[in-house]
Every structure is written in C-alpha cells, then in structure tokens.
C-alpha cells in the first residue's frame, strides 16, 4: 500500500466520520429521554448551586453515578438514564475521592452541610476535602440548596422529613436538658430503650471506642464530650453535651440505636453504613464510661456470655 497524502487524509477523515456517527451520533439520536420516576426540574437557586459545584471542580472527587453493586452513600437508588436528562454538562465524575452524591439531598440537614463546607473535618474528622469557607455564606447557602436537591423527588421527601424533625428537635432542646434527654429516649423504640449494653467494659474495648470516637464524633461532640467540638457554632440544635446525661436513664440500647439510626433533623447522622455492630457498642460504651460517667455494660437483663468474654 502506497501512503500518499490523499490516501492518508481521505482514509483518516472518513474513518473518523464513520466511527463518530456510529459511537456518538447514533446513541445521541436514539437515546431514551424519558424522565425517571424521581426526576424533577431544578429551581433557579439549585441551578446556580450546580454552577458553583462545577466551577470548583467538585466533580473530580464526587461521582453522581450509583452502580448496581454499591454499598455506600446513596446505594439504595441505582442510577437511571432518566435521572440525567436536565444535566448540561452531565457530572457523572470519574473518581470517588469523596462519596457519591447522587442521593445526597436530605441525607443531612442544611446546618450539617454548612459546618462541613466551612471545614469538612468539623463534621467528618477523617475527611480529606479542602475547606470552602472562602466561598462566603451566600454561595455556601446556594451550593447547599443544590446538594439538597440531589436525588430530586426522593431528596424532596427526605428534606421534608428533615424539616419536620428539625422543628421537633429544636422544641425538645429548648425545653431544657431534662425534657431533651427524655425526648431523646422516647424517640427510640421501646425494645431498645430497656436494653443495656450487652458486652462488658474492658480496657481494650474502651481503647477501640476511643479510636472510633476520634474518627467519627469529635468534630461535633468535642474531645471531652461536652458538645463543644469545632462544628458547634454552625449547628442548631447544638451537638449533645453527654455530661448532662448522668442519671437521666440513658441505656446502652438508646445510645446504640441513636448512633445506628442518627437523629433525623439534627446534624447527628446515622452510622449504620460506616460502623459495624461491635464498633457502635464500643464507642457507645466509651461515651457512657468517660463522658456520662454511668455505664450499664454487661448488666441484667443479659443473655449467655459471648465466647470471647473472659
């Protein structure tokens, strides 16, 4: 084959044209543009927030693309083509240096996000996201509106729930420590309330609890459990002061349930995905022993001792 300029030019350009038509134009012209069940249009503020999201390269660390085999954030709604029909550009992302944000809307209340944007380590101590305090409050608010819309109609349902429980939690907090502790116990299902921590307190378990506390809790509840972590000024109702709970009938089961399920409406997230059972019991006991100064670990009613117990 003799490679003349004409052969090269005609050859490469016709190949490129044919292949572009096949693998780009064909899917473009045949793709289904039906909205998915959760899709809705964005509001003007949400669209402005998305612009801030793109300008600051959030997309390099956060995907918006839930896969069939994901376990983490947002994994309960697998992505569909109809979720993206208003995205120009689409922001699927190519890397998860941070979590997927497809269903982030309503996972947390607004104040959690604001504390997190001021400095991500205030709410998530192991986070490696840079701080965005420099955006200023106006843009942080706009960006938060966008984040709270991720997941569209599902996000709206979750936000509705956040707002309802935000009101309830503020009422309880403002009624004083007694009422607040009572409220915190009463929102836990009956069976859990009467359940003591089934495992004994040991030196090793306290050390493990300490590690978990530092990686997950310290930003809001502070190093001495008084609720004065660096996130405190941004959060309302403020993080719980554990030292007020002594003698207020907070069982190991209540602590476990609240850590597992979170307190929707407040900045207290659920840790069900992040922490397995042992870790939740142990950090709960760490809080009970060191901050509440009252632990019901290994008290009756209890079952058979576990095989590992001394």
């Amino acid at each position: 084959m003799r490679m003349t300029p004409a052969v090269i030019l005609v050859g490469i350009l016709s190949l490129l044209a044919a292949i572009t038509l096949t693998v780009v134009y064909w899917p473009y012209s045949t793709i289904d543009r039906t909205p998915s069940d959760i899709f809705r249009q964005r509001t003007v503020v949400e669209a402005a927030g998305r612009k801030i999201y793109l300008e600051n390269g959030c997309v390099y660390c956060h995907s918006q693309s839930i896969r069939a085999f994901d376990w983490g954030h947002g994994a309960d709604r697998i992505a569909q083509a109809g979720d993206y029909i208003a995205d120009e550009p689409i922001a699927l992302g190519s890397q998860r240096t941070g979590v997927d944000l497809s269903q982030e809307g309503g996972e947390h209340p607004d104040d959690w996000h604001i504390a997190h944007f001021i400095n991500p380590r205030y709410t998530r101590p192991s986070s490696i996201m840079p701080p965005f305090e420099w955006l200023g409050m106006a843009r942080i608010d706009t960006l938060t509106q966008y984040i709270q819309s991720l997941g569209f109609k599902n996000a709206d349902i979750r936000m509705e729930r956040q707002r309802y429980w935000k009101n309830e939690s503020i009422k309880a907090y403002e009624a004083g420590p007694d009422a607040n502790a009572k409220w915190l116990a009463e929102i836990v299902p009956e069976g859990w309330r009467n359940l003591p921590n089934p495992y004994p307190t040991t030196k090793a378990s306290l050390q493990r609890g300490h590690v978990i506390y530092q990686k997950f809790c310290i930003g809001c509840h502070g190093p001495i459990g008084d609720g004065m972590g660096p996130a405190q000024p941004w959060i309302y109702p403020p993080p719980l002061n554990f030292t007020l709970l002594k003698g207020r009938e907070i069982s190991g089961g209540i602590i476990y349930y609240q850590l597992m399920n979170g307190i929707t409406g407040t900045a207290m997230p659920y840790f069900k995905r992040d922490l397995e059972s042992q870790k939740i019991w142990e950090v709960g006991d760490y809080i009970a022993v060191y901050f509440i100064n009252q632990s019901d670990a290994n008290q009756d009613p209890r079952g058979i001792d576990a095989a590992w117990e001394p």
Partner: peptide, 12 residues
C-alpha cells in the same frame, strides 16, 4: 455550556 445534555454528553 460546551456540553450536550444527559447521558449523550457522557458518551461524547
């Protein structure tokens, strides 16, 4: 925008 809309944008 310099972009298409939705999934075709990702493909392109």
């Amino acid at each position: 925008t310099g972009a298409l809309v939705g999934i075709p944008d990702a493909i392109l």
